[in-house]
């Protein structure tokens, strides 16, 4: 039987079985990025399916944030393909990135709240600027989203400088989910928080992502966070994804790099760079 007929038959069978494969929401193929002589990403391959929560783990300086920034268009990869929701973004124009980013929410490591605005204006910013919503309407949605992350209306009128680290993360999360995005990125969501607040943020992330039905991509080196948030975990080392598996699989893996990382051991094949350019 010719190949095309074979594949057509397979697709029909899959359709009948309800196994039709949809294209991944995010697909990175052979992505390379360097800064001067320092190679940060050296052929990253990763697929994130629709509605899936993938966590990228890896040591400091392994290129986790660079990967996110390449997907968001904040950095341009030298080589490779990045497809987000069917659109190639690796060499896309600023306008295409603006369109794609309207489907994306992002929680930054330090929350990155605009300190010239109040809390509710921060949450409503994307709605007012990106979606041209009226101030009144955006205010109501901001209050609703703040309530979703456990913050009351009294917090809405404060300045970001008046908030604790945990509260900033919550406001950052409210801003990330404000426009009900299809994709949410979390950059080190629990860094700098105490274990209890970390767990609260992790639970909020899980509940918000589930409620929205969004695709989530998180980067972290906090294994407790990864175990709680992830459907799938990918490990980034030496500019490449060296291991991908589920939370259950990571506990059983014999990969020495992954084992060293989850054990948090100084001894093993991973040699940490002391300097930023090493």
């Amino acid at each position: 039987m010719p190949t095309t007929q074979k594949s057509l038959l397979k697709r029909t069978v899959d359709l009948l079985k309800g196994k039709e494969e949809t294209p991944p929401m995010i697909k990175l193929t052979d992505v390379h990025k360097s800064f001067g002589k320092k190679v940060v990403l050296n052929g990253v391959n990763l697929e994130v399916q629709r509605g899936e929560s993938v966590v990228i783990i890896g040591g400091s300086g392994t290129g986790k944030s660079v990967t996110l920034k390449c997907i968001l268009g904040l950095l341009k990869p030298e080589k490779g393909s990045i497809i987000v929701d069917g659109t190639e973004v690796s060499d896309a124009s600023a306008k295409v990135h603006e369109q794609i980013n309207s489907k994306i929410g992002m929680l930054f490591q330090g929350a990155a709240l605009f300190d010239s605005m109040s809390v509710w204006e921060n949450v409503a910013f994307g709605l007012m600027q990106g979606k041209k919503m009226s101030r009144k309407e955006a205010y109501h949605i901001a209050i609703e989203k703040l309530a979703q992350v456990g913050l009351g209306e009294d917090v809405a009128h404060l300045d970001p400088a008046d908030l604790s680290g945990g509260m900033k993360k919550r406001v950052g999360l409210a801003r990330a989910i404000a426009s009900s995005p299809d994709i949410i990125f979390f950059d080190e969501p629990t860094t700098g928080l105490d274990p209890i607040m970390s767990d609260i943020i992790n639970e909020l992330i899980v509940s918000c992502v589930k409620k929205l039905g969004a695709t989530a991509l998180t980067i972290t080196h906090d294994m407790a966070s990864a175990r709680k948030i992830a459907d799938k975990i990918a490990m980034l080392y030496d500019g490449k994804i060296i291991w991908v598996g589920t939370v259950k699989e990571i506990e059983k893996t014999k990969n020495p790099y992954v084992r060293q990382f989850i054990a948090g051991s100084a001894n093993g094949p991973i040699q940490m760079a002391v300097k930023a350019d090493e």
Binding site: G73, A94, N101, F108, G110, A112, F114, G126, Q129, G130
Partner: peptide, 21 residues
């Protein structure tokens, strides 16, 4: 300060061009 605290990156992710804003 906005650059080093990632506020400019945040503007881009909120579909707002930092040059225009």
């Amino acid at each position: 300060t906005m650059r080093v605290t990632e506020q400019i990156d945040a503007l881009s992710t909120l579909s707002t061009n930092p040059f225009k804003y």
